[in-house]
Simulated assay, not measured.
Amino acid sequence: MMLVLGIESSCDETGVALVEAAGIAVPRLLSHALHSQIDMHQAYGGVVPELASRDHIRRVLPLATRVLADAGRRLPEVDVVAYTRGPGLAGALLVGAGVACALGAALGKPVLGVHHLEGHLLSPFLSADPPGFPFVALLVSGGHTQLMRVEGVGRYQLLGETIDDAAGEAFDKSAKLLGLGYPGGPALSRLAEQGDAQAFKLPRPLLHSGDLDFSFAGLKTAVLTQARKLGEGLPARKADLAASTEAAIVEVLLRKSLAALQETGLQRLVVAGGVGANRRLREQLDAACARLGVRVHYPELALCTDNGAMIAMAAAMRLAAGAQQASTDYAFDVKPRWPLHEIVAA
């Protein structure tokens, strides 16, 4: 048995978790705890990096103490300390990396830096219905929108990605144009439930491009143009515009995902990342995949956002697959920009 303590601090959520791994079996989540900084950043309309870093410092050790207590384990029992090495906010990443390496050095246990997006990619393995390899993965997390072919842990082929704004950014920026609060994506989705998705004809960028790349910057501009046209009439039509915006984003994600399945010939789709919690996206993917006889897998809703469980899980799976070795060299660095396809099996 191997106990992995995972620490996530890439942006505005501090997450800590403990997983238990045994051989090649899927690791088991023992406990996890999460602190969101949403309330703190709301006053500024977005994440303030310095405030985020300072809050991670305050939260990470109390969360680790809680996780160990909830699991009925003691700190010396931990075999590996994993942390998010990147991508993310440099200062926030340094907090998690520093704490993880300090814990490892104090315990005499190895540490492992994990790719944040790989954590999201493997997070559905924490669900009650874990996927099997190979599969197509739709990663829709914050500033990232990518389609990957996944043959195994560390064996990733990039099929397509956004060339400008990601889907999450399109949600957040459109929400800001509509005067909605932070975080914008969930606020826009809630408002969209009250609106007519057919009310406004908004563009579906790159929908017929013939490749698997994405582009959402033009959609954001179209939302701005429409909001300006409405002028003083915007408040009365805000729900309709929100619904039309959500429908455009979801259609692009849906159609590109189905195209990736057709291109690869695979029969399994994994959807991971914060946008993967969107109700409309899940409903449409479920319906389309059911018609095609394709299995679709999601992380549990509570694990769609950034969390320590996905970091501990990814570390345990990489170690079990022999894709990486933990290290007792406690010098560390972070990688605020780190393409996922650079992570390959050893």
Rank of each mutant, 00 (worst) to 15 (best):
R149E: 15
I163M: 15
G154E: 08
A170Y: 04
D164F: 08
L147H: 06
S174T: 10
E151F: 01
L177K: 14
R155I: 00
L158M: 11
G179Y: 09
S174Q: 13
A167H: 11
A170G: 07
L159N: 07
L158N: 00
D164Y: 03
R149I: 03
T162R: 04
L178I: 07
E161K: 15
A175D: 03
Y156W: 13
L147V: 10
A167Y: 08
D172K: 05
Q146R: 13
V150W: 09
M148R: 02
F171C: 01
R155C: 04
D164R: 02
S174V: 05
I163F: 00
R155K: 13
G160M: 10
M148V: 07
E169C: 10
L180V: 12
I163H: 12
L180Y: 03
L180S: 12
L159T: 14
L177N: 11
G160T: 10
M148Y: 15
L158G: 08
Q157L: 09
F171A: 03
L180F: 06
G168S: 01
Y156P: 01
L159R: 05
S174E: 14
T145L: 06
K173I: 13
D165G: 07
A170P: 00
L177W: 14
S174R: 12
L178A: 09
I163A: 12
L159G: 02
L178K: 09
S174M: 14
G152L: 09
S174L: 09
L177M: 14
K176R: 15
G179F: 07
L159Y: 03
G160N: 02
E151V: 00
G179T: 08
A175I: 13
G154S: 06
S174W: 07
L178F: 06
K176E: 10
Y156A: 00
G168I: 03
R155P: 04
G160L: 03
L177S: 13
F171G: 04
R149T: 01
E151C: 11
E151L: 14
G154V: 04
V150E: 08
Q146W: 00
Q157T: 15
V153C: 11
E169P: 05
I163P: 00
T145W: 05
A175N: 08
D172W: 13
A175E: 14
F171R: 00
G152P: 06
R149V: 01
A175V: 13
G154R: 02
G154H: 06
V150S: 12
M148P: 00
A167L: 09
T145R: 03
S174K: 02
E151T: 05
M148Q: 12
E169G: 06
A166L: 07
E169H: 05
G160R: 06
V150Y: 10
D164L: 06
Q146T: 08
K173D: 12
T162E: 13
L178V: 09
G168L: 02
G154T: 04
I163Y: 01
L158S: 08
Q146E: 15
A166T: 07
K176C: 05
Q146P: 01
